[in-house]
Every structure is written in C-alpha cells, then in structure tokens.
C-alpha cells in the first residue's frame, strides 16, 4: 500500500502543479470579478444590479460539471477556441464568481448605513469611502465564507480532469491505468487534497484572527 503510494508520487508532481494553477487562477479571477460585480450590486443602480443578480443566481444554480461541459463544447460553436485548460478555468471562474458576488454583497450590506453617511459627511469620495470605511469593516464578514469557497475551488478543480486536463486527479488515474491499484492512489489523492485545504484553513484562521483584532466591534 505505502509502496504503491511512494511509487506514484513522482508521477503526480506535474498534475499537482496543474491543480494548484487551476485553483489559483480561479480564486484570483473570481475574487477580482466578484469584488467589482458584488460592489456594483450593493451600490449600483437597478439597471446594473439586475443583470449581475441574474448572472450570480444562474452561475450558482448550474451544476459545475454542466457548466464546464457547456463552456468546453459551447465556446468552439461560438467561434472561440480555448484549450481544455483555459476552458476549464473559465468555467470554474464563472461558477466561483457567482459565489463571490453573493459573499461580497452580503459583507457590504452588513455594514450599518450610518457608516456610509459618516464617510460622506467628512467629504470622502466613493472610492475612498469603500477603501477606508466600508471594506476594512466588511472584510471580517467576507473572510470566513470566502475561505470556504476557496477550499471548494480546490476540490472543484478536480472536475477539469473530465475535459482532459492532466491535473492531480487525472495524473492519479493515469497511474492507476498502469498499476491497476486504485485504492492506494485514491487514498493518496485524498491525503494531498486534505493537506492543501488544511493548510488553507490554518492560514485563513490566522487571517481571521488578525482581522478580528484589527476590527473590534
């Protein structure tokens, strides 16, 4: 059992890096998009909020696997040719952005309206009101659900193997194809995913504690 795992390890390095790359790109992309769209949803006019709301709800309502296949097979039909890697990253990012929009909106609207008024009253511009008053307070509400969603992204990235991207999951299956020993390999895979997400959790708990101290209620 252990031997089978040790035998497999060198073959998994490349796939592991791909998993990290997919997760990292998805997390970063959805964070940027989600911050912009979630802020627009919280403060923008209705004509801007409605499409954002519709997008967020749709993205979250579709099973991830369906979204991945739709982007993978759908984009070429529209004349856009993406490699499997980028198609998968795009699909996962859309999905994740739907969640981040909701988390950002919730964190922002949890801040009392008086904060925005006080920030206006000292003459801060919209961007400065967000930067110095709203975001520093909202971040504490934002972090716990967002970190959950980051670990979800790492787990969800395993689905990219279904469109032929050689990530950790796919690399594991390739080794199984040679050794015909699924159990040790899937166990090893589980351990690696757990290790990644456990270190994320530890980091996030540190972050949360720091922000809790900074932002005393």
């Amino acid at each position: 059992m252990i031997e089978a795992m040790i035998y497999a390890l060198p073959f998994l390095g490349q796939g592991f890096l791909v998993t990290l790359a997919v997760s990292g790109l998805v997390v970063a992309g959805s964070l940027v998009l989600g911050l912009v769209l979630g802020t627009a949803l919280a403060f923008g006019p209705v004509w801007l909020g409605l499409p954002i709301r519709a997008f967020a709800d749709t993205a979250r309502a579709i099973p991830l696997i369906v979204l991945i296949f739709t982007v993978y097979y759908g984009l070429p039909a529209l004349g856009v040719n993406l490699s499997p890697f980028w198609a998968a990253v795009a699909a996962l990012t859309l999905f994740k952005t739907g969640h981040v929009i909701e988390i950002v909106r919730g964190a922002i609207t949890s801040i009392a309206a008086g904060q925005m008024e006080a920030a206006k009253a000292i003459g801060l511009s919209f961007v400065d009101r967000l930067r110095y008053v709203i975001f520093p307070q909202a971040v504490r509400r934002f972090l716990p659900p967002w970190i959950n969603s980051v670990t979800d992204s790492v787990k969800g990235s395993a689905l990219v193997s279904l469109v032929g991207v050689v990530d950790l999951m796919m690399a594991i299956q390739q080794v199984i194809g040679r050794t015909y020993q699924p159990m040790p390999l899937y166990l090893l895979g589980a351990i690696i995913y757990i290790a990644v997400n456990a270190s994320l959790s530890v980091t996030s708990r540190r972050l949360e504690a720091r922000f809790a101290r900074v932002v005393a209620s």
Partner: peptide, 17 residues
Amino acid sequence: IRADIGMVFQMFNLFPH
C-alpha cells in the same frame, strides 16, 4: 461640498475599526 459641512449624528456613527 460635504467637506465644508460638518455633521454630528445621533448614533455617533464613528468608524469602529
């Protein structure tokens, strides 16, 4: 314009952070 008008609120509205 608001920068030239000060406002003090009933519920203080201090920045808690």
